[in-house]
């Protein structure tokens, strides 16, 4: 496919990766997007073409009207602001903007490192350096934020819920995070949304087409 026929918004994707969260966000935003699927078995994420897009060799990445964005949380902030008619991001002058950014960044800066260390069965770095204190403190912080509900920002559903709902769905599914009632209910609430169901089904079909299942 040549560049001139490319749509305004491209998602570089793999159904069994973090990129599934971005696909769910695109479905929630209700925008048209073109999918470029990278097959990890063929190491397509490390091919020169893709390394020019994301030199970290990871998905997701998006290209929106020529602007490249990588890193899931950056993509979330970018897309939810860009398609603000979907009302998934508090505006710059909205009092909830700070809370929204806090929990989006917390995911990348604290939660993923905490889960990574847990997966590696190792201790966090010493307290003075560790970005996340310890695993239990991190999970407790998230739980406290989710407890009032129904969403992270209270009554208001946002892109942060798409991120956390999907991340917690994966991690409770793999047994990496305990499905406490607060977390399990929240995941169920997010996943009951039609856009989330659409994204899951689309990625299940894609995985089957790629021969990634069964």
């Amino acid at each position: 496919m040549n560049a001139s026929s490319e749509s305004d918004l491209v998602l570089f994707h793999n159904p069994h990766s973090r990129a599934a969260m971005t696909r769910a966000l695109l479905e929630e935003l209700g925008v048209d997007y073109e999918l470029r699927v990278l097959d990890f078995r063929k190491q397509e994420q490390l091919a020169p073409d893709y390394m020019a897009i994301n030199p970290m060799g990871k998905v997701p990445a998006i290209r929106h009207k020529g602007t490249l964005v990588t890193e899931t949380v950056a993509i979330f902030i970018y897309l939810a602001d860009m398609f603000r008619q979907a009302n998934l991001a508090p505006g710059l002058d909205d009092p909830q903007r700070g809370t929204y950014l806090r929990w989006l960044v917390f995911y990348a800066a604290c939660f993923e490192p905490a889960v990574g260390d847990r997966a590696m069965k190792r201790e966090p770095a010493p307290r003075a350096q560790s970005p996340y204190a310890d695993f239990d403190t991190t999970i407790n912080a998230v739980t406290s934020a989710l407890q009032p509900g129904p969403w992270l920002l209270g009554e208001r559903f946002s892109a942060a819920d798409v991120l956390w709902g999907n991340a917690l769905r994966w991690l409770t599914g793999f047994g990496m995070v305990e499905a406490t009632p607060v977390i399990a209910d929240y995941v169920a609430r997010v996943m009951a949304r039609p856009a989330e169901q659409r994204a899951i089904k689309a990625d299940e079909s894609l995985a089957a087409e790629m021969g990634l299942t069964g």
Partner: peptide, 12 residues
């Protein structure tokens, strides 16, 4: 987009 990317890249 690049600005957000590098802001997040720091923590992630």
């Amino acid at each position: 987009g690049a600005y957000l990317r590098w802001m997040v890249f720091y923590g992630s």
